[in-house]
Design a protein around this nucleic acid. Sequence first.
DNA 1: GGGATTTAGTTATGAATAATAACGAATACC
DNA 2: GGTATTCGTTATTATTCATAACTAAATCCC
Lengths: 164, 164
Amino acid sequence: MARRSLKLAGREIEEPEDGDAAAVELISLSDIVGYALRRAQMAVFEDFGRRFAALNLSPAQYSTLATIGDNPGRKQSEISAALGIQRPNFVVLMDELERRGLAERTRSGDDRRSNALALTASGVELLKRARALQGEQEAAVEAILGGEERKTLVAALRKLAREI
Amino acid sequence: MARRSLKLAGREIEEPEDGDAAAVELISLSDIVGYALRRAQMAVFEDFGRRFAALNLSPAQYSTLATIGDNPGRKQSEISAALGIQRPNFVVLMDELERRGLAERTRSGDDRRSNALALTASGVELLKRARALQGEQEAAVEAILGGEERKTLVAALRKLAREI
DNA sequence: GGGATTTAGTTATGAATAATAACGAATACC
DNA sequence: GGTATTCGTTATTATTCATAACTAAATCCC
C-alpha cells in the first residue's frame, strides 16, 4: 500500500509506517562527542546510584569523602576548588557529611577564617566500603570495554576536560 | 622548619605546607571512569554553551531539533523516548521551540491523541547553522584527541551507555 | 456495542543540582 | 591604621530531573 502523506509545517512529508515505529534515528547525534558523553554519564551515574544505594552516598558525596581522605587537613575551599564545586554548594554538602558524622571541620590554627577538613573514624570506614563498591563498578566497565580501552577512555576524557 | 602537626578528628596529621597549597590531589578519583566522564561532560557542555550562545540553544534543544529534523512526522513520545527525555519535561521543551517558531506540533490524523512533530522553515534554517557550530566543536575535539581517538572515544561511550 | 484498560499529551509539583549576590570575620596589603 | 581581599556562610534563584494525576482518544474484549 502507498505511504500516506502528511502536511507538516507547510511541507509534504512521508508519514512513517508502523514498521518504523521502533526506530527513531539519532543519526545527527550518533557521532557527536558531547551527546555520547551525556548518555554515557547518565548511564554510569544510574549504575552508581544502584551500587551505592545501601551506603546512601551520591557521586558528589563519594568524591568529597575520597578527596578529603586523600588530602586530610586541607582547607574547605581547596577541596571544593579541586572538585570543581562552588563554595556555597560545598557548604551544604559538608553540612550533610558532618551531620552524618563522616567528616569534620576544624577551625585552622594559622588562618582562623578557614576550615581544615578531615574524615572521622566512621568516615574512614565508610570510605573503605565505598571504595570497594567503586572498584566493582570499575571492574564492570572493564568487563565491557576491556582493561586497555578503559585506560584509554579515562586518558581521553581527562585530556578533553583539561584542554577544551 | 618542622611541619606543624594538627589534631583532626582525633588523629594527628601533618598540616600541609604552603608549598603544597596548589596541589590538592584527586588520586582516588583520577582513574575512575565515572568521575572522568563527569568532568569531561561539564567541560564539553560549557564549550557548547559558549559556541551556541548566539543561537540561544541548549544542548537539549539542539538535540531535539536535530532529531526532529532526522525524523519528521514522528510522534512526540517517540522523539522524547529516543532522546531519553521524560515526557513531561519534553512538553515544556517543545513549548519553547514552538513559541520560538522553530518546530510545530500537528495533531496526527490516524491517532488523534498524538502529535506529529516537524521543523518549521526557520527551524530548518537554524538547525543548519547549529550543525555548522556543532561541526566546529567536533573539529576542536579532533584537534585535541586526533581523528582516530575521537572515533574510538565515541564508540567506547556508546558501548558503555548501552551495556552498563 | 459498550464498559474497562491503555496510551499520548499535559499540568502541577517536588527533589536535586547549580549559579549569584551579599555579609561577617579574619587576614593581607601598603 | 585603613583599605582590600579571602574564607565560610546565608539567602535566593535558576535549571534540571522525576513523579503523580488528569483529559482525551484509542484499544481490548466479552
